[in-house]
Amino acid sequence: MILSSERPADFDAYWSAVEDELAELPVAAELTHLPLQSNEHSTVYAARFTGIGPYRLFGWFSVPTNGDGPFPTVYQLPGYGSVVHVPAYELRQRYAVLALRHRGQRLSDKPYAASYPGLLTDGIDDPATYIYRGIVADCLRGMDFLLSRPEVDASRIALTGNDLALITAALRPQANALHCSPSLLYNAASLAPKTSAYPLEELNDYTRAYPDRAAALAHTLDYFNPLHFADQVRCKTLLVTGNDRDFLSPAVLQPLTDSLAGPVTPYVSAHSSYRDGVQQAEWLSSHFGYSDTLLPAQWQG
């Protein structure tokens, strides 16, 4: 079943309600120094703060040891999986970095531990119960945490990640750069039937098992489609696409590219963690005004 995605009439009200819930809760940040992960270049903390529910969240927060700051900051939004790495050694040397683990991911998994597969359809019959309502709120709360930190230069915050990074950029305009690789929520209901690969296969599994719920699933996903947030993204954006043979080809993502309100630079993935990794690192360096880029030894030269 191919279902088109439409912006729900109460889209703004839905997200305003989420914002209201967040506003009623203090960030209540706690930082615990992590000697094991800290090194000569950066100090790493376990950051804990409160999301809606209330729900206590975890993130890796690192601060360069070189200088007093405030530092240009990279906020890494989480991917689809239970583990989020400690930020990379090279990245931590120059930037303050937050790597969030949203509710359900390890260290943010009490009381709710996400299933993989399973997370993508948890509570999906109703926008009010869909797990991604809380997950997006967690991402927003991570930004609130950063904006509360003296180590962070609030005028220089870049977001990196998948669809969650784009949604966060839309709802937290303090972010002034976005490096985004859509992979999960973009036109998900209509694209899922074209693949058998997880995580989108979770949607196929669900509609196969509960065909009478397909319309409800699509309706819920409409609230989370990056396409419907794009006109609120006014910051500079690097949008990563697949190539012409890929599922998320430039053509498939063109509506998203066209809808972003700020300046957009498209980038076709090389399907190489080396070449794509260098591209992202250099893009961040350029954005923050550095003439050089810190790279792993294997990526130099």
């Binding site: 090389a270 399907h271 190489s272 963690s273 080396y274 070449r275 990794g277 294997q298 990526w299």
Partner: peptide
């Protein structure tokens, strides 16, 4: 050559 930890899994 030209690939990182993905080791050209795509190709």
């Amino acid at each position: 050559d030209g690939y990182g930890h993905d080791s050209n899994g795509y190709g």
